[in-house]
Write a protein that binds this DNA or RNA. Structure first.
Length: 618
RNA sequence: GGUCCCGUAGCUCAGUUGGAUAGAGCAUCUGCCUUCUAAGCAGACGGUCUUUGGUUCGAAUCCAAACGGGAUCACCA
């Protein structure tokens, strides 16, 4: 991806400590050494040293012809003498650790707290992006792997929106094809009870997607039995798999569907509509929605005219059997089929057409696909083709690839029935959260009504699950441990949710005691000393816009998860070390309240970027 | 076999553009609630960053090779 504009980061305030120190260091070097430095990277000072920002002087030793420590000493002294921001420094070898004046911290706090849009960035050109995710098949319910996909896509969409992009969320439903016909056929065969009544979601009490999933499994069973029988009778396995009567029937059904046979189409519509009702319920449960849903039954014929175009442009070539190919060997890829010899489409043909269509519909500068890493190769080829066809959007395409989710027992395998169902998992997670939370609450929830409790437990269960799946780098294959996923302690969603509730509780108490929390009360000058933990909190908060921006450029919800945890953890340390409401110095007290309020708000925003709600009480 | 991804504490994972003695959580052990929510905090224990070379003031990070795990290389999607 092209690097984004770094300049949009600092829209937060007139007073940006980091930038101020950076430019001051540049001036220091110019004045002290008559040299210019263009890059002034600062890093957070390690915990065991005093200071907030660290400037590494090793790289300057050659140009300035001085020892690293000497340079640090000189620059540090200069900063203290010539700026109001830097209050002190210490030098350890090539590391210049810089401490910031309390007045500067409080200034920053005031700017952040006074800006309701803090952390919402803007793109000067009003850039737009489309995120495609979820994209389920209509022959089975969503499972754990789909949840990772959905949470990623949803979160990335929110992060990009916070970065100032116009975001369009799309979903392409795979609602046709052989696999759909399998469910349809099985339903026609087994879906009627002894008295001739067809099974429906209502009659069975099953969610529509689960009901259809059941028939998909039934087909597979019957088909396998048939193949085994044929093999036992002497037919070679491969031949049996192709010629089994059930498979023939499925193929015939697909042909009928493609011809628009009314009866087949009616059955298809009926079953799919049940599945959609089921999916809608799941999406509502997990808080995921789309701006536009595409159906493959409408798009599967697209792309053929692009094949013609490619042939005319000489990008594709036709073989003797009249199949059409592209040769990408000079890019380290292979030769790839784009149209079958019988003139019908393959996956690639369709994707070429759909990508064009999405661009025609929305004209977004970028398109992102959240799709598992087993399709890495497919997307490399797709993007390469679109580049060669000279599509104007070709450089804005990105495959957000993610790894599989394994179980402690190993891979999820649908054939072995080890797949973790999404709905079941959410129900179990909520249940586990309820049990654990009820116990941990120790009476705190006594005044909650049943619906309030249910709402909280749902929030905690879902928060635990989303956080668990999002805190890991998408690219990495990850292990799903059911016990860990519902944990309320440590680096978890509920831990962060708890901190939010904790802060809100303090703020409520302050209000009930008649302590006002107006920004105007924030005293910058006579504030006295800030505790290092308070400085650390303000520093962390000031990093928020930058983290949002980095998460946007890297499509990385995990950055936000990590950040939210740091905020929560640091607040707990602050909360343990210093009293807020019992502070006798009212200036300090009000400053702490403002700091706490901003912290709650920022935790809420950050968790919101992960699609996680935070409670007022827990 | 070709290509791509991954390899960090017993387990699950962080580790920003190469920087200080590599960090969290879980698990195990030890302290801290008459005081704002203890669903918390503090501490202890735990490492040849898979291995070997290279690049340089400096490498978990960059390069190369090996080893281990995974994916993919269909006229499937």
């Amino acid at each position: 991806m092209p690097p984004q504009n770094r300049a949009c980061v600092s829209g937060l305030s007139s007073m940006n400590i980091q930038e101020e120190i950076q430019s001051a260091i540049q001036r220091a070097v110019t004045e002290l050494y008559q040299q210019t430095v263009t890059e002034v990277p600062l890093q957070p000072t390690k915990k065991e040293f005093e200071g907030t920002y660290t400037f590494v002087t090793f790289p300057l030793t050659k140009a300035l012809r001085q020892a690293p420590a000497q340079i640090g000493q000189a620059i540090g002294t200069w900063l203290v003498d010539h700026t109001t921001v830097v209050s002190g420094f210490n030098v350890v070898q090539g590391f210049l650790n810089i401490s910031v004046a309390d007045a500067a911290w409080l200034d920053v706090l005031r700017d952040m707290a006074g800006n309701p849009a803090f952390g919402t960035l803007s793109q000067p050109d009003g850039a737009s992006v489309m995120v495609e995710f979820s994209s389920p098949n209509t022959n089975k319910p969503l499972h754990l792997g789909h949840l990772r996909n959905n949470f990623l896509g949803d979160s990335v969409s929110r992060i990009l929106a916070a970065n100032g992009y116009r975001v369009t969320k799309t979903c392409i439903v795979n609602d046709r094809g052989v696999h759909i016909c399998k469910s349809m056929l099985a339903y026609r065969m087994f879906g009627t009870d002894a008295s001739g009544q067809p099974e429906t979601p209502a009659s069975s009490g099953m969610k529509g997607d689960h009901l259809i999933g059941k028939y998909y499994v039934l087909f597979d069973k019957a088909y396998k039995a048939q193949v085994e029988e044929m093999v036992a009778a002497g037919t070679p396995k491969e031949e049996a798999e192709k010629t089994a009567p059930l498979m023939q029937e499925v193929q015939q059904m697909l042909r009928l569907w493609e011809q628009g046979d009314p009866e087949t189409v009616a059955l298809w519509r009926q079953l799919n509509s049940w599945v959609y009702t089921g999916f809608d319920e799941t999406y509502r449960n997990i808080g995921v929605s789309f701006d536009k849903t595409y159906y493959e039954s409408n798009t599967y014929l697209l792309g053929k005219e692009i094949v013609e175009e490619g042939l005319a442009k000489g990008v594709f070539y036709r073989k003797d059997d009249s199949s059409v190919w592209i040769d990408l060997t000079d890019e380290g890829l292979d030769q790839k089929l784009v149209l079958r010899s019988d003139g019908t489409s393959v996956y690639m043909t369709q994707d070429l057409g759909t990508t064009d269509m999405k661009y025609t519909d929305f004209g977004t500068d970028r398109q992102i696909w959240v799709v598992g890493n087993e399709q890495d190769y497919h997307f490399k080829v797709l993007f390469a083709i679109l580049r060669r066809l000279g599509r104007p959007y070709a450089n804005g395409l990105y495959h957000l690839s993610y790894g599989m989710v394994d179980l402690p027992t190993g891979k999820m395998k649908s054939r072995e029935g080890t797949v973790v169902d999404g709905d079941d998992l959410i129900a179990e997670t909520t249940e586990a959260a309820a049990t654990a939370a009820d116990e941990a609450a120790k009476g705190k929830l006594d005044e909650f009504s049943d619906t309030e409790k249910a709402d909280l437990f749902r929030m905690l269960g879902l928060g635990a699950l989303k956080y668990y799946l999002l805190k890991v780098d998408p690219q990495k294959r990850m292990q799903f441990n059911p016990a860990e996923s519902v944990d309320l302690h440590g680096n978890t969603g509920p831990y962060i949710q708890y901190v939010h509730a904790r802060i809100r509780s303090v703020l409520r108490k302050a209000a009930s005691e008649g302590i006002s929390v107006n920004l105007a009360d924030l005293t910058v000058e006579a504030a006295g000393q800030l505790d290092p933990i308070e400085q650390q909190l303000i520093f962390l908060l000031s990093q928020y816009p930058q983290r949002v921006q980095e998460a946007g450029t890297d499509y990385a919800p995990s950055y936000i998860a990590q950040y939210a945890y740091e905020l929560a953890k640091t607040f707990n340390q602050f909360y343990d070390k210093l009293s807020i409401l019992k502070e006798s110095d009212t200036t300090k007290l009000k400053n702490r309240l403002i700091l706490s309020a901003l912290l709650a708000e920022t935790i809420c925003k950050a968790m919101g970027l992960l699609g996680i709600e935070v409670p007022e009480k827990m």
